[in-house]
Design a protein around this nucleic acid. Structure first.
Lengths: 193, 193
DNA sequence: CGTCTATTTGAATGTACTCAAAAGCGGTGG
DNA sequence: CCACCGCTTTTGAGTACATTCAAATAGACG
């Protein structure tokens, strides 16, 4: 049984027949292979990507070559370089498949058009953006108030499926620590269990 | 000449006569004195607050007594405990006036009602949430990729009015460093100018 | 002018990083 | 099916960025 973007939206708001038909009309199904990029720095992020199967991560690579993960996405999640997407400016992030994946994509201009036509879709995207913002604020706070080990344990508890599925260097760069240090944290926190 | 919430919104989207009239109908004008709280942990954040005059900060106080500033707001900005506001759950933040201030407030349930009635308002609040989310993501990244001194200089450059207006301990807690360390940073970065 | 709070300064400490090297694991070809 | 190669994870030693604590100084407000 596969997830679809329409089901995902229907779970949160009521879409009438025309809205869901129009939405289906702009969906693009796509297969993405492991290590393939769906967003790259320098090119505008033209689509929002809904993960049907597989997993992704979005990350920044700084001048010194360090990676900083902004977001992971697994089944039933959206991913993009959101700043690039909403301002339609060149991306700064890479968004890369961590596994062979199946996605549904919707393009910026199509989404904006449908939001004008269907109040229900505008409503949905408002809710999504608001929740995303709220959680993003929480993440800023947890990065401040917890130290590395607590952040790791918290993440592991909150997103066990993700912790088990992503490479450790990716998780380290999400937590804001070096891969070596994450390794040391794991050693210490398992031995005391 | 004073800012108003209606002007603020009109600058971004077209409001017809009914929408702006209905919006005016739910506005509550309020004066807030320095050091007064408009949001406190334990109580739901029922309103979004638009700053007409003055300044505010939103911050978390952790178990060990440390403060962590999430957001500042000056004239023409909104502030709230956004997580509490959108989920209508008890707040975790304090939102406190840094100066004697004048604000306009809109209540959650009224906003939701107006968003249903007026597509233009739903659109406005989607745009706001999306931009807020995009900038929040950027902030997470800049906390990772820059170290304390860079973060300070970046903030000073991007928000000079705020840097000049808020107490240093508040700015330190926004940057995620101790007040002592911010003091040392300032000493070093001014002497080399 | 005195009191209270905010900022500065310095010394000792800790958390997390860098660098280098070894060990583990997975995929691919012979 | 095993062997090898490359990439990821682990380990350890030395180091750097930022913290804590304590005390002195400066500013704000009544």
């Amino acid at each position: 049984m596969k997830y679809t973007i329409v089901d995902h939206i229907q779970r949160q708001v009521d879409l009438n027949a025309e809205a869901s038909r129009d939405l289906e009309g702009i969906l693009v199904n796509r297969l993405v292979r492991k290590r393939q990029f769906i967003v790259q720095p320098g090119f505008a992020c033209t689509h929002q990507t809904y993960v049907q199967k597989g997993s992704f991560r979005g990350y920044l690579v700084t001048a010194d070559g360090t990676e900083h993960t902004v977001q992971f996405a697994i089944e039933d999640w959206f991913i993009s370089d959101f700043h690039s997407y909403i301002f339609q400016e060149p991306a700064t992030l890479f968004v890369e498949a961590l596994e062979d994946s199946a996605v549904q994509q919707i393009e910026y201009s199509h989404v904006e058009t449908l939001c004008k036509t269907h109040h229900s879709l505008e409503h949905f995207f408002r809710l999504v953006a608001q929740k995303s913002f709220a959680f993003s604020q929480k993440r800023i706070l947890s990065n401040f108030e917890m130290q590395a080990e607590e952040r790791f344990l918290f993440f592991k508890k909150q997103y066990p499926q993700i912790e088990a599925r992503v490479p450790q260097y990716a998780l380290a760069s999400y937590l804001g620590i070096s891969p070596e240090f994450l390794s040391k944290i794991k050693r210490n926190s398992t031995q005391s269990t």
